[in-house]
Amino acid sequence: MLKAIVPRKEICIEDDLAFKLKPASSDGKQLLAKCGIQSEKGPVIGVNLRTLSKQLSFDIVHSMAQILDQLVEEFNCQFVFIPFGYGSVSERVFDDDRTIALQLKKFMKKAENLKIISEEHRPADILGLFPHLDAFIGMRFHSVIFSLITQTPVVSLIYDTKVKELIKKKHSQLILGTDLPCRDLKSQVLNSIRQILTNQLPAHEENS
């Protein structure tokens, strides 16, 4: 019956529509500079976290603060927190990534090295930031997609099935995945970022 109504040849499963997005023509580097990021000072790493359960969110933020502080010590990294959820619906406060961004900044000892994009921008403008990042640490599904579109090395913090399936399907060497919850989150993420930056630092220095 279904075959008679919808012929097989007309059924098409496509990738998420975000894969068709193109970066805005405006320079993403200007948006980074507006946030206080100066790429000549050291590697620039994008970060995206989202709120989960209270305890898990606390554990992730606490570990990430230690990770970012350590990367400042080792590589003089700068970080830009890129929200992918702005709490558009007031009842869904957990959808506002800026909340967890402020918590992360509070936990960091080197908080001055973390900048937060607090204003909402068009997806194309946010996508335009990614080519100017040396690496990205992300949780949200579309943040990983943006990394793939721009071929930005990403450490994905996998919190649900759709992110895991995306990574499995794309099977890209640019993605290093870590399943949550994770007892050794700090060491896994640090080792992944070290691996990325060790390979990229010479090119970064040439461009500065």
Rank of each mutant, 00 (worst) to 15 (best):
E73M: 10
E73R: 15
S57G: 01
F130A: 02
D27W: 03
A124F: 01
D69G: 13
Y86H: 09
S88Q: 12
P23M: 05
D95Q: 15
L21Y: 10
G46N: 11
I82D: 00
L129F: 10
F84I: 08
G128Y: 00
K109S: 14
E40C: 06
E119W: 11
H132A: 05
R98L: 00
V61I: 09
K105Y: 03
L56E: 15
L102S: 03
Q55N: 08
P131M: 07
L71C: 14
K29A: 09
E112C: 03
L68P: 04
L32P: 02
T51W: 11
V72H: 09
Q38N: 09
I100F: 05
D125M: 11
C77W: 11
Q66D: 03
H62S: 14
T51G: 07
R98M: 04
I100C: 06
V93I: 13
S39P: 10
C77M: 14
K29D: 05
D125W: 12
F107C: 10
I45H: 02
R50Q: 03
L127Q: 07
D96W: 00
I82P: 10
S90H: 12
P131S: 12
K110E: 13
T99D: 01
K34V: 04
I126H: 01
D125Y: 08
A33E: 15
Q66V: 08
R122C: 11
P43R: 06
P83N: 08
V44Y: 01
L102W: 03
K22N: 05
A33N: 06
G128W: 00
A101R: 14
F84C: 12
S39C: 14
S53V: 07
